[in-house]
Computed example of a mutant assay.
Amino acid sequence: MNIPSSPSASLATQMSEAAAAAAGQQQYPAGTLYLVATPIGNLSDITLRAIHLLSLVDAVACEDTRVSAQLLRWLGLHKPLVALHQHNEQSAAQGLIDRLRNGERIAYVSDAGTPAVSDPGAVLVAAARSAGIRVLPLPGASSTVTAVSVAGDTQAQGFRFAGFLPTKAAERRTAAAALISQPHSVVLFEAPHRIRDVLDLLAELAPDQRLTICRELTKQFETVHTARCAELPAWMQADAQRERGEFVLVLHAAPPQDDGGELPAEAQRQLRVLMRELPLKQAVSLAAELSGSPRNALYQQALAWKSEADEAQG
């Protein structure tokens, strides 16, 4: 999250007063852990309730003290900060539990968005609940929900959050293959240095499914683009600027198949013959061309047969 220079003291006071007026009537019990969502890019997306709660707490646990210090400074707040990130979450959680038992109010924030969704926080929440400590969420910005809302996937039966695909190519292929042809949207995160590889993979595995690319959500140069997976590698390569920033991808639900999901017997026969002679992806491509059956369905069938064969050999 890019945080501009601090506002004037008068503006910070006005924000604090507005937050207290809007959220001050609610009770904020002591000895409670508060999960506070912070903006994912646009600082003005912070809620009045979050501002008020942050003014009340005894300490703020955070993913990166430098990022959170800037946020608090912008809000005109000064609070003790405690680092809790993926490398120290277990040990840091215990110290926070002790403070909560002593009646302190403690907020946990990640660098951007809702804590414990891809970001750290889940270990702390579990430890607090195990210790009998109350945990309360303050909803706010979420890149996952933001991306799903703008994807416009009318066929989806809900959505699944999958986060980052594995970094190793073979593991990434296996994970991606398990996500395609689903009746729900699938939300993925991706870094700029891997975005081309992921788009190439999805273009190969699910060329006819639609994908919504959300880049730099809520920021000045945000981009939202939806197209068939087969079209997206070329779209990305057409402008080098499109590869910059952080990405949220929404793989749309697979369209329903006219055959009810069952491949015709002739298509299955052709696929089996081709698989005996060719690598899997080539066999699937040729079977789709010869039979006219959906490539996604053929690919899933080929994976199922391959898995059965591997188990038999094992």
Rank of each mutant, 00 (worst) to 15 (best):
A170M: 07
R172K: 15
R173C: 04
T174K: 14
A175Y: 03
A177L: 11
L179S: 12
L179T: 11
I180Q: 06
S181I: 03
Q182V: 00
P183E: 07
S185P: 03
V186Q: 13
L188G: 05
F189D: 04
E190S: 14
P192Y: 13
R194Y: 05
R196W: 02
D197S: 09
D197Y: 00
V198D: 01
L199C: 13
L199P: 07
L202D: 03
L205T: 10
P207M: 05
D208I: 03
D208Q: 15
Q209A: 10
R210N: 09
L211W: 06
L211M: 08
T212D: 00
T212V: 04
I213T: 06
R215Y: 07
R215M: 06
E216N: 12
E216I: 07
L217G: 09
K219D: 01
Q220Y: 09
Q220M: 15
Q220H: 15
T223V: 13
T226Q: 11
A230C: 02
A230M: 01
E231V: 00
L232D: 13
L232F: 08
L232C: 13
A234N: 05
M236K: 12
A238N: 14
D239V: 01
Q241E: 15
E243Y: 02
R244I: 05
G245Q: 09
G245A: 09
G245W: 05
E246G: 11
F247W: 04
V248Y: 02
V250S: 00
L251A: 02
H252M: 06
H252S: 09
P255R: 12
P256L: 12
P256H: 09
Q257I: 05
D258G: 15
G261H: 11
G261D: 14
G261W: 10
P264S: 15
A265H: 06
E266Y: 06
Q268Y: 00
R269K: 12
Q270V: 11
L271K: 02
R272N: 03
R272E: 07
V273I: 10
V273R: 14
L274K: 10
L274P: 06
R276N: 15
R276H: 13
E277N: 07
E277Q: 14
E277C: 00
L280F: 05
A283Q: 14
V284Q: 09
S285I: 01
L286F: 09
L286K: 15
A287I: 05
A288S: 15
A288V: 06
L290M: 01
S291L: 04
G292F: 12
P294R: 02
P294Q: 00
